[in-house]
């Protein structure tokens, strides 16, 4: 297990942090909104949310260290002890687990000799079980420093960690040309671009299934209606000679929610703010 020596911020490191913190605070009307970016920033320097980092955030934002710790401990991406150079996260939420994620985690765990939230002796890999990472059409999914490694098998996953430990450049299936370090990643998440947005693909094969099928079959969304100059004060006139297509009728006569369309201003009992 690697350790980070106690090293109070001073000199150029402090200057750099203060400059970056000012930049982050400048993005928000209220500086406190910069706390999440600042915690990412601290991790980009120290490899975890260090005691110094908590002090720095508190001093910068005029908070107590308890207030900063309360926030830092709420979010899983903030680490309470030094993280490995690469966080390797295997999705073991239901869909990925069923498709093979459980087996991948087990084999990686055996291979690396560490369990969940543990780091290899060489300080390279911190292994984690992660929750759904919004790539279910590529299951089973593994994340390395939060870059996508799609359609994994135990063999592929072991190969990735072996190459990472050997210091090779490793490319995600969808992402930058190579995985960066935990500290570099944390700096990007703090809002400081690393200039790598143009690397990698726009979309993976599963993302494009529908786009490709539609192209192959000649399926398109309808052409723009002739009544493009929609005048809300003249409802139904805007369509000109084109009759308004009402759309397919729902299969049910008893809607679960009040009608949404038209010019309806009818009051609704639905809460206006339930959209998750």
């Amino acid at each position: 297990m690697t350790t980070t020596a106690y090293e109070p911020y001073e000199g150029t490191k402090l200057e750099r942090l203060e400059r970056d913190a000012a930049d982050a605070m400048g993005r928000y009307p209220d500086p406190r909104s910069a706390l999440l970016p600042l915690l990412h920033l601290v991790q980009s320097e120290d490899g975890y949310v260090s005691p110094d980092g908590i002090q720095f955030c508190a001093r910068t934002l005029g908070l107590s260290t308890a207030e900063v710790s309360a926030v830092a401990t709420f979010y899983t991406q903030y680490k309470r002890h030094p993280n490995g150079e690469y966080t390797v996260g295997v999705c073991t939420n239901t869909l990925c687990a069923v498709m093979g994620g459980d087996a991948i985690f087990d084999e990686l765990s055996d291979h690396l000799g560490v369990g969940h939230d543990e780091t290899t002796e060489d300080g390279k890999i911190t292994l984690e079980r992660v929750e759904c990472n919004a790539a279910c059409d590529y299951a089973p999914v593994m994340m390395v420093n939060w870059e996508f490694f799609d359609n994994q098998t135990p063999g592929k996953a072991k190969d990735v960690v072996d190459r990472l430990r050997a210091g090779e450049a490793v490319a995600p299936t969808r992402g930058a040309a190579s995985v960066c370090s935990f500290k570099q990643m944390s700096r990007v998440l703090a809002g400081f671009s690393d200039g790598r947005a143009d690397e990698g693909v726009g979309a993976g094969p599963a993302t494009l299934e529908g786009t490709r099928l539609a192209r192959e079959k000649g399926w398109q969304a309808p052409p723009a209606s002739s009544g493009q100059e929609h005048d809300p004060s003249a409802e139904a006139v805007g369509a000109g000679t084109t009759p308004v297509t009402p759309g397919r009728t729902s299969s049910t006569d008893t809607p679960a929610a009040p009608p949404a369309g038209g010019t309806s201003d009818t009051p609704t009992r639905r809460e206006p703010s339930k959209e998750a």
Binding site: G210, A221, P222, P223, A224, S225, G227, Q228, E229, H230, G238, A239, T242, V244, T245, P246, G247, R248, T249, S250, P255, A257, P259, A260, G261
Partner: peptide
């Protein structure tokens, strides 16, 4: 860009338009 009627020409009467499935 395309108009209200264009959007409403897709989907159902109460669930208008398109969506990613």
């Amino acid at each position: 860009a395309n108009g209200v009627d264009w959007f409403r020409s897709m989907g159902t009467e109460k669930s208008t338009g398109f969506g990613l499935f």
